[in-house]
Design a protein around this nucleic acid. Structure first.
Lengths: 195, 195
DNA sequence: CGGTAGGGATAGGGTTCT
DNA sequence: TAGAACCCTATCCCTACC
């Protein structure tokens, strides 16, 4: 029928949380009727609120572990080494690292030879940019706009983010972390990671 | 442990198609519970049914398009699967079953019932557009701008060429020669040729 | 009926295996 | 790289119970 699936926006989720704070759980119809939230939640039913709250609660319980697991899965051969000069405040929505996990049992494994004594400084924004390019998986590279759109959708972005991204892209391509590609029939330069 | 990937048998697939014919898409549990199919599908879950149906649909759409290009004839509208369109989708799938033999290619009489009434006119500009997309070799498709730049560089272009290209792109995608692709992190729609 | 809780089904995105 | 089978889980739906 109508909507294939109506995903909850951050605004809606925030309104729901505020509503529960104000009226308590189980007062779904009350929250919906509160003029403070009714505009944001106008396309939701009381049952929707109940379901979403249930989902949020579950996620809160088990969320962090699973996210750590996911992060491990797609761990890039990327520098684990942290730089100290992170001036930009990028707050990841999803990445709360808590690795209390020991190495998986039974694995021969051996030590992890993290040699990365890299001379190039990698800021946390740089890591996000690399993640964006990796996850976009564009074989001919991703341009600035795509990279920025990815970051904007997956992270909380402070003002001037676009410019910061541009600056870091320039830096990363000048030090060899990224390679700039100028396609003949594209206006915008694309970037690929160096493997 | 772990299931060794249980491949779908033709009997199971036939039961699934019959079940969708009888109960409609999205009624996976109902199909499973129907005594008419439950014996054949007893080792499948409702989620399995849903996944398999998705695979079948994708394959069918792709297949019919491929055929369309070869014969330069039929254009199948590729609808979203709603209850209204379900019957049509089923018919198409059923027809696909008939071709166990590769009917001799090149023969114009190509064997299946054609619903085509669409005049599939290919103008010379269309050919150029197809050439552009082919030669650009962008795996995720080429957008209007890239296509136009290619043409502009390789051909003598009269005024209004940009508009002509746009018009033909619309036409070619509506009749199934091209497929429009909207990437999540790209502003502009891309086009790919039907292989 | 109107509302909520809980169980369960579906849709879509991802992942794994080949 | 693609395709098929399978997994994960947010969202949606149904029913029992006030």
């Amino acid at each position: 029928m109508g909507a294939p699936k109506q995903k909850w926006t951050p605004e809606e989720e925030a309104a729901l949380k505020a509503g529960v704070l104000k009226h308590g759980t189980g007062k779904w119809r009350t929250i919906l009727s509160d003029p403070e939230f009714s505009s944001v939640l106008k396309s939701r039913s009381n049952v929707d609120l109940k379901d979403k709250w249930r989902n949020i609660s579950v996620t809160a319980l088990w969320g962090s572990r699973k996210k750590a697991k996911l992060a491990l899965k797609r761990a890039l051969p990327a520098p684990k080494q942290d730089d100290n000069n992170t001036a930009l405040a990028i707050v990841a929505l999803a990445n709360d690292d808590e690795r209390a996990k020991p190495t998986s049992p039974g694995g021969s494994g051996g030590g992890s030879p993290q040699t990365c004594a890299s001379k190039r400084s990698i800021t946390s924004l740089d890591k996000i940019i690399l993640e964006a390019i990796t996850n976009l998986r564009e074989l001919r590279g991703s341009d600035r706009t795509s990279i920025f759109m990815y970051i904007e959708e997956n992270f909380k972005t402070p003002p001037n983010m676009k410019r910061h991204v541009a600056v870091r892209l320039k830096h990363l391509s000048s030090n060899g972390t990224l390679v700039k590609i100028k396609h003949k029939y594209r206006f915008s330069t694309s970037y690929i990671t160096v493997v």
